[in-house]
């Protein structure tokens, strides 16, 4: 299995505050990688660096090297909009646009130049099927997306991210705003999705990391403390701090 993202000596500052310190990580393709750690440890910040969403925050400075399929994502030749098309994102709080379900899914493809109605219809159906929400939505595609339940909204957001055919899906605590039933549906979905996509997921819930992920990275105070196969990290952590965290001694 090859690595799709490789990060070398990456650091990030918000103004004078260093939020990430010398992070090195290789993320394997077609797998689920979970980022865990106490709040404020930098895991979300790191996730958002991978599709350059941190660029938008004023005062952010990033050093080091991040490569996606061998290309430096900060190089001048890289168009950030194309990068974000390749590396999709699902947010903590479901955030469908205040438009119809159809328009939500079609927004990405339309942005990237697809206007053909037949083609769009196909893309919308495929994305909704991939996100396991087609049966619930096929009769109400023209209805406003904000009328759906929280769990449905989040799966719609996943479908929306899939509609632009990304390679990687970044998920920032995608179930933290959902009830347990919706959460387990999303978890099932995520596991299915790794057939086709690489998934990187921030979670505040260690059980969730154990249930779904293949690899786990533990962040603490801006440092990547340990990165390994999920089974290994939770059964025999190498670092004392990791052990303290997963046994619930802090955080």
């Amino acid at each position: 299995m090859s690595n799709i993202i490789s990060v070398k000596d990456m650091s990030l500052w918000y103004g004078d505050h260093q939020a990430l310190k010398n992070v090195n990580i290789e993320i394997p393709e077609k797998s689920i990688t979970a980022f865990i750690g106490p709040s404020g440890c930098g895991k979300s910040t790191f996730l958002k660096t991978l599709n350059r969403m941190n660029d938008l925050i004023p005062g952010v400075k990033i050093t080091g090297d991040i490569r996606y399929e061998g290309t430096d994502i900060f190089s001048k030749e890289v168009d950030v909009n194309n990068l974000r098309k390749e590396i999709g994102m699902v947010f903590q709080k479901p955030n469908p646009f205040p438009m119809s379900i159809y328009d939500n899914i079609a927004y990405g493809p339309r942005t990237h130049g697809i206007t053909n109605k037949v083609e769009l219809d196909e893309i919308v159906e495929r994305a909704l099927r991939d996100a396991a929400i087609w049966d619930e939505t096929k009769d109400r595609l023209k209805k406003n997306a904000l009328g759906m339940s929280g769990g449905q909204q989040q799966r719609l957001c996943i479908a929306r991210a899939l509609a632009v055919q990304p390679n990687i899906l970044l998920m920032d605590e995608p179930t933290s705003a959902l009830d347990p039933i919706s959460t387990s549906r999303i978890e099932e979905l995520v596991v299915e999705l790794k057939e086709k996509y690489t998934i990187v997921m921030v979670t505040h819930n260690m059980q969730q990391a154990v249930r779904v992920s293949d690899y786990t990275a533990f962040f603490l105070l801006g440092e990547l403390v340990e990165f390994d196969k999920t089974d290994d990290i939770f059964s025999q952590p190498r670092d004392k701090r990791t052990e303290d965290y997963i046994t619930g001694r802090f955080g």
Binding site: Y68, T71, I73, S75, E77, V78, D79, N81, N82, L83, E86, T111, G113
Partner: peptide, 11 residues
């Protein structure tokens, strides 16, 4: 792929 710039229409 990544270094493709925006399409003419979008630009």
């Amino acid at each position: 792929m990544l270094n493709q710039s925006l399409s003419k229409k979008r630009k």
